[in-house]
Amino acid sequence: MSLVNTKVKPFKAQAFKAGKFVEVSEATIAGKWAVFFFYPADFTFVCPTELGDVADHYAELQKLGVEVFSVSTDTHFTHKAWHDASDTIAKVQYFMIGDPTHEISTNFEVLRPGQGLADRGTFIVDPQGVIQSVEVTAEGIGRDATELLRRIKAAQYVAAHPGEVCPAKWKEGAKTLAPSLELVGKI
């Protein structure tokens, strides 16, 4: 079953953000756009390239009113150690959630059975806590923050413009579609 159009399930966890340990829960995302960015483990190979890419785009995400929550099954203590040890991860200013209980990874259906690691999963959540987009990739396939930004902008546009949809390759400012009987077979 797809998680698209379902509400984020309740959770509570510890995160590392801005040099501090903080508690986060589903209440933390209430009323704002959010991205949950799952990855297998700290101190690995593809993961830091992805987190660094999102960090490079974090200011733009914040301008869109989006908060980012990276999540792995490591602890928040491990996140701090990685942040302190890696120049790439030192750029991360968003929440780094520790999920050692696997509650959040299970809720988002990205926990690898028998491995205790999360798949690479990206979830865009609207201000009502409803999942609007899901992307899950295999272990060796890194994600691109510019594509994430495009999907967020499309989700925000559709939310703000009922009756319009964003076609393939849609970019901010480009033409949208208004589905109707007259449009059927005309595209």
Rank of each mutant, 00 (worst) to 15 (best):
M1L: 06
L3K: 06
L3N: 07
V4Q: 06
V4A: 10
T6D: 06
T6K: 14
K7F: 06
K9W: 05
K9I: 01
F11G: 06
A13K: 05
A13D: 02
F16R: 07
F16L: 03
F16M: 04
K17P: 13
A18Y: 00
A18K: 14
K20Y: 02
F21D: 09
F21V: 05
F21P: 08
E23D: 13
S25E: 01
E26K: 06
E26T: 07
T28I: 02
I29E: 08
G31D: 04
K32C: 09
W33M: 03
V35Y: 06
F36A: 06
F38W: 04
P40I: 07
A41E: 15
D42Q: 09
F45M: 06
V46A: 04
C47D: 11
C47G: 11
P48E: 01
L51A: 10
G52L: 02
V54Y: 10
H57W: 08
A59T: 13
E60A: 14
Q62E: 15
Q62M: 10
L64G: 04
G65F: 04
E67S: 13
E67Q: 15
V68N: 12
V71A: 03
T73S: 15
T73K: 09
D74K: 05
H76T: 04
H79E: 04
W82C: 02
W82L: 01
W82T: 01
H83R: 11
D84M: 05
S86V: 00
D87M: 09
A90I: 00
A90S: 10
A90H: 03
K91L: 01
Q93G: 12
F95S: 13
F95Y: 15
F95N: 14
I97H: 08
T101D: 13
H102G: 08
I104A: 02
I104S: 00
S105N: 04
S105Q: 03
F108G: 13
F108Q: 11
V110D: 08
L111W: 03
R112M: 12
R112S: 10
G114I: 05
Q115N: 07
G116I: 00
L117T: 04
D119H: 11
D119V: 05
R120Q: 07
I124T: 09
I124F: 06
V125T: 11
Q128L: 12
Q128G: 14
Q128H: 13
Q128E: 15
G129S: 11
I131T: 12
V134H: 01
T137K: 12
A138S: 13
A138W: 00
E139Y: 15
G140V: 14
I141L: 14
G142D: 07
R143A: 05
D144N: 15
A145T: 07
A145G: 15
E147P: 09
L148S: 10
L149V: 06
R150W: 01
R150C: 01
R150V: 03
R151N: 10
R151Q: 12
R151L: 05
K153T: 04
K153P: 12
Q156P: 12
Y157W: 06
A160R: 13
E164D: 10
V165S: 09
P167D: 05
P167S: 04
P167H: 03
A168H: 09
A168R: 10
K171G: 11
G173F: 01
A174D: 14
K175G: 08
K175M: 05
K175H: 01
K175V: 02
K175T: 08
K175C: 02
T176A: 05
L177I: 09
L177S: 10
S180A: 10
E182P: 01
E182V: 07
I187E: 15
I187Q: 15
